[in-house]
């Protein structure tokens, strides 16, 4: 099993994602430099990590979209390969057209780093099968532009196809406005594509997957991926 962690200029959760895949999960993992635009088919899963690709200048993900590796990620995803984009990775996948909608500035207009609670909306994906439906988990967010928005038609589509994987919720699982940290429409925290092989999420599961950090709620994401790859 081989993981690839994409490194854009300005990616800064690349080491964290590498650490999880390589040392916590124990799988072969490599960095993929954005200029080395070669075929990704040798990988079983591609992680597009968080950070500030191109400094988030212009708008997050807008410049990374034109980076040579992005075409390869698209090819890989369209061929059915597993791609997970976390935080800035989610923003890039949206800009690249692999996921619908847009991530706008948080409604507080401030960067927010804190733990939030997520309710599992769809556990029938390669990224979430280790959780139970409706389960509430604690995962941190750290972003300035995580306010998910999509037009009504797109939202309808997302809901109809069960593409909403996580929503921001209270600790009791209520998806209320009070539990919404950034203004995302319908409290959306993470979505997948129709084929279920591409996931984008604003929260950082790699930051809560080890006992020493006091929270292992995020580990299920990586376990789900490994389980899926082992079974397929």
């Amino acid at each position: 099993m081989k993981f690839g962690v994409i490194v854009f200029p300005g990616s800064n959760c690349d080491h964290d994602c590498y650490h999880i895949a390589k040392h916590v999960m124990g799988h072969d993992t490599s960095y993929v430099w954005h200029k080395d635009a070669s075929d990704l088919s040798g990988y079983d899963c591609i992680i597009v990590p968080g950070g500030f690709s191109y400094g988030d200048y212009l708008r997050p993900g807008a410049i990374a979209k034109y980076s040579p590796i992005t075409e390869e990620i698209k090819k890989y995803a369209n061929g059915g390969g597993l791609v997970i984009g976390i935080c800035n990775g989610f923003q890039i996948l949206i800009e690249a057209g692999l996921l619908p909608g847009v991530l706008m500035r948080n409604r507080s207009l401030k960067f927010i780093c804190q733990d939030v609670y997520l309710k599992m909306e769809n556990t029938d994906t390669p990224f979430s099968s280790e959780y139970s439906a409706g389960q509430v988990v604690k995962v941190p967010i750290a972003h300035h532009d995580g306010n998910y928005f999509a037009d009504d038609a797109t939202l309808k589509d997302l809901e109809a196809n069960n593409q909403v994987v996580f929503r921001y919720a209270t600790v009791k699982g209520e998806t209320s406005d009070e539990a919404n940290p950034n203004g995302s429409v319908s409290n959306i925290a993470g979505i997948c594509n129709k084929n279920r092989n591409v996931l984008g999420m604003m929260p950082h599961p790699e930051r809560c997957a080890e006992k020493v950090l006091g929270n292992k709620d995020g580990l299920g994401i990586f376990r789900s991926i490994v389980k899926h790859l082992t079974q397929s």
Partner: peptide, 14 residues
């Protein structure tokens, strides 16, 4: 104040 700072990146903050 500190909620505006990313205090968890690098996944070392115990």
């Amino acid at each position: 104040i500190y909620n505006q700072y990313d205090h968890m990146v690098r996944t070392d903050t115990v």
